[in-house]
C-alpha cells in the first residue's frame, strides 16, 4: 500500500510504457493519487496527461489543481459528467466534452483525438473512475470498452491508469479490472 504521491510516482516510473494500471484508491487519498500522477510522474516522464473524468466535473478538478499550483498546460480533460449536469459544461481550452458517460465510443474517440493532437510527446491516460462509469454502463459493455481502449493505448505506448474507488468497487468490477489491466497498485492512508 502506497501512502504518498511521491511513492506512487516512483512506483509508476518503474513501469514501461504501454502499461495499464488498476489504481485502487481507498480512504482520502484521492488527491494524493492525482498529484502523484499529474504533478510528479507525468512531468518527470515528459508525458501529456489525458484525464477522463466521470466522477466529478472537470472544472472541479481544475480548481483543485490550481490550488495545488499544478501546471495545467499539458493536461487535457475528457469530461463525461458536465453535460449531464444543468449548466455544467463551460467552455475551456483543454476540456473536451462527451455528452454522456454512456457514450463510451465517444470517450474513445476524444482520447484518440487527444493522443493525435499531442503526438510530439507520450501520454498518460487517467480514467477517473471505473466505479462512476459502472453506474451508467453494464459490466459487459464496460469490459468491451476497456479492452478496446486499453489495447489501443498500449499500441500507442501510452500509460493507462484506471481509478477504482476501493470502498465502492463490486466484485464484477474487480474481476474485470483484473482481466484488462496489467497490474494493481493500491494507494491509501490506512492499512
Amino acid at each position: 500500500m502506497i501512502k504518498s504521491p511521491g511513492d506512487l510516482a516512483e512506483e509508476l516510473r518503474e513501469l514501461p510504457p504501454s502499461s495499464a494500471i488498476n489504481l485502487k484508491i481507498s480512504g482520502d487519498s484521492y488527491f494524493d493519487a492525482i498529484r502523484g500522477i499529474v504533478d510528479i510522474f507525468a512531468p518527470k516522464k515528459d508525458l501529456d496527461v489525458i484525464y477522463i473524468t466521470v466522477a466529478i466535473p472537470s472544472h472541479s478538478i481544475i480548481d483543485v489543481l490550481k490550488i495545488l499550483e499544478i501546471d495545467l498546460s499539458r493536461i487535457y480533460f475528457v469530461d463525461c459528467v458536465s453535460h449531464t449536469m444543468i449548466g455544467g459544461a463551460k467552455k475551456h481550452d483543454n476540456v473536451y466534452y462527451v455528452e454522456s458517460p454512456t457514450m463510451l465510443e465517444n470517450i474513445m474517440l476524444k482520447v484518440e483525438y487527444l493522443v493525435r493532437k499531442t503526438s510530439e510527446r507520450n501520454n498518460v491516460i487517467v480514467l477517473d473512475a471505473i466505479n462512476a462509469l459502472g453506474i451508467h454502463n453494464n459490466v459487459n459493455i464496460l469490459s468491451e470498452f476497456l479492452h478496446i481502449m486499453l489495447n489501443n493505448l498500449r499500441a500507442q505506448d501510452a500509460y493507462s491508469i484506471v481509478f477504482t474507488m476501493d470502498d465502492t468497487a463490486t466484485e464484477d468490477t474487480n474481476n474485470m479490472m483484473g482481466l484488462v489491466c496489467d497490474l494493481n497498485i493500491s494507494i491509501g492512508s490506512d492499512g
Binding site: E105, M108, N140, I148
Partner: peptide, 21 residues
Amino acid sequence: YVLDLTPAGVLLVPLLKGGGG
C-alpha cells in the same frame, strides 16, 4: 463503427456491442 469529425480528421472506433458476457 462510430465516428467523430475532428480537426485531426475522421476518427473511427468499433461500435460497442455490450453483449459480451
